[in-house]
Nucleic acid binder design. Structure first.
Lengths: 325, 325
DNA sequence: ATTTGCAATGAAACCCGTTTCATATATAAT
DNA sequence: ATTATATATGAAACGGGTTTCATTGCAAAT
């Protein structure tokens, strides 16, 4: 693999001059410049990023830690962050944790060792709070609420209001027996959504009926079946996310329960598939793109220097489609 | 950020000794070892990966270039490669190209500069053949056919047979007016699938009816509408992939055309969503997991040293579900 | 008591691109 | 013609792990 010094020798100049041509950091005689560029072209020289990173103590990289790349919600998030990062001159580095706190910690450590400039953690669990507190790289939390100042910034949307909206919408659509498939309660997002559901139930004096389910469609299938046994009178289901809502629909369809005729469904996240279903899924919209943009923007504009504990809460909205009346 | 030399000073040893403890490359006095480990723990020292990479000329990284992370087929592929890479001690590095050949080249160059140990390109276009030929890092092509020896290995499945199977299945299921929504023809996978369709049509003396469509669900919606205008007699549709098949189903559903009653549909890829739909999608299964595993295995076992132009062709199969009779 | 051999350890060189600082050359000003 | 200033360029140092090679210390063998 050819080095900058070899290019320099071939061009009859010093490595410094080649470096200056590559980076445009200083004016170089146009003859030499041309010669250098030609030799780079001919030899296919590519600067060693490890050496660059070592010197500048920055890999020009934004790390993104997500619980599951298979979940289209995170895929969308990742795709946006990918785009925005590249636009801002950063390499996006995606880490998949499979909802495993140990893997979350490992990913964090890896990104630190790689000299990532910032780390975006999406829907992270509380288990890595400690690790994040000690992280020498600014961490932006996305899609999770934080009470303390461990992170440099916290971007999320109004989960509680989302939970309320879903419940109120079902009540307005005529449901009296609403079951909430609540998400894993060690996640802030799941907890606050659930709280919204609970409060609206209390306000309307309707029974609180719940099952708990991971953000995973196989478990969604299982929990929906359990739900139907446990609450046979159900006429409205709030799923913890769209994936689970899709599994819910599937189970109802198989059991010949009409949607939205007998049971209405509301999802969460508005993943792109939610409107591809037939019937299309009523769901709560998170402004994923804007949230992703904000996260990258904060990093690119270097607004995280002080551990400022910035908070950005985005509004949610309900989109009524075909799984509710 | 603390360095290995500072750790060494605190422990009263040399940097070499600390390095040996971290990597287990040589025996170290157990007292010193313990002291070193304690100090690493206390200070939160993390070795600088850039320095390591610079020295060993390898980032212990497998690059993965995919056309679109939003397409669940590639997401699944990426998830498997992610898992297997980590298991083999490599960092997976995902690059998204948005079907843009320039971005494909940029990703390739970036991975080279980062000292990736190998690069897996999924469904790459022919446009980067030249760039791959000159790539100093072994390239494994996944989900694309190659005629020449530009890549170190080529892993794909039998697209042609897949195209045949889909067509024969529709014929056996009673279709006489089959329309093929063929994929982008600059991609080998799309071309061979289409060829399979054409050959079966010829053998059975049924008309060849085609529209062309990218692997994208929005275009899938549009092309299905066009298809229905162009071929109103259609009774069977072969979609170029599952995403397009899902859009096809959606358009038919909206137009009250029953599936599989009036029109039958076959997809391609067997993405996880295909069996979540109601009705579940009949499709062609690619052994994605096995293909991903083979790719990582070749790299991890260092079987790519000679530019051996290895070929691995995986069989496809058809899974008849609910969109065909 | 002396030599041989081995194990543990440290100093220094190395990986390669970037930057600083000093030098050489050219231009402008006196 | 001479000094002052600006510009282009190169040598050397740096960043932080890793490895080689030499050394030290100690135990076993003679």
């Amino acid at each position: 693999m050819i080095t900058i010094r070899e290019v320099a020798k071939l061009a009859g100049v010093s490595a410094s001059t080649v470096s200056r041509v590559i980076n445009g950091t200083a004016k170089v005689d146009s003859d030499k410049k041309e010669r250098i560029l030609r030799i780079i072209e001919e030899t296919g020289f590519v600067p060693n990023e490890a050496a660059r990173t070592l010197f500048r103590k920055s890999a020009k990289t934004i790390g993104l830690i997500v619980p599951s790349i298979r979940n289209p919600y995170f895929t969308e998030l990742a795709a946006y962050i990918d785009d925005f990062s590249l636009q801002c001159g950063f390499r996006p580095f995606l880490c998949n944790t499979g909802y495993d706190p140990e893997k979350e910690k490992a990913a964090l450590q890896m990104l630190i060792s790689m000299k990532a400039d910032a780390i975006i953690v999406a829907s992270c669990s509380e288990y890595i709070k400690e690790a994040i507190k000690n992280c020498p790289v600014p961490v932006v939390s996305l899609d999770a609420m934080w009470s303390g100042p461990e992170v440099a910034a916290c971007i999320h949307c109004d989960y509680y209001e989302g939970g309320r909206m879903a419940t109120e919408h079902l009540i307005e659509s005529g449901c009296h027996n609403i079951v909430c498939i609540k998400g894993p309660q060690y996640r802030y997002s799941a907890r606050y959504r659930y709280q919204g559901y609970l409060d609206v139930c209390k306000e309307h004096n309707i029974p609180e009926q719940t099952v708990e389910c991971d953000y995973d469609f196989n478990q969604g299938l299982a929990m929906t079946e359990e739900l139907l046994k446990k609450y046979p009178e159900v006429d409205g289901i709030i799923a913890c996310n769209d994936i689970v809502a899709i599994s819910t629909y599937k189970v109802l369809y198989e059991q010949n329960i009409s949607v939205p005729g007998q049971v209405q469904i509301v999802g969460f996240d508005n993943i792109s598939f939610s409107k591809l279903l037939s019937p299309e899924l009523t769901t709560i919209i998170q402004p994923i793109k804007e949230m992703a943009e904000k996260a990258v923007e904060l990093i690119a504009n270097n607004e995280l220097t002080e551990l400022s504990d910035k908070k950005f809460i985005f509004p949610v909205s309900l989109i009524a489609r075909q799984t509710t009346k």
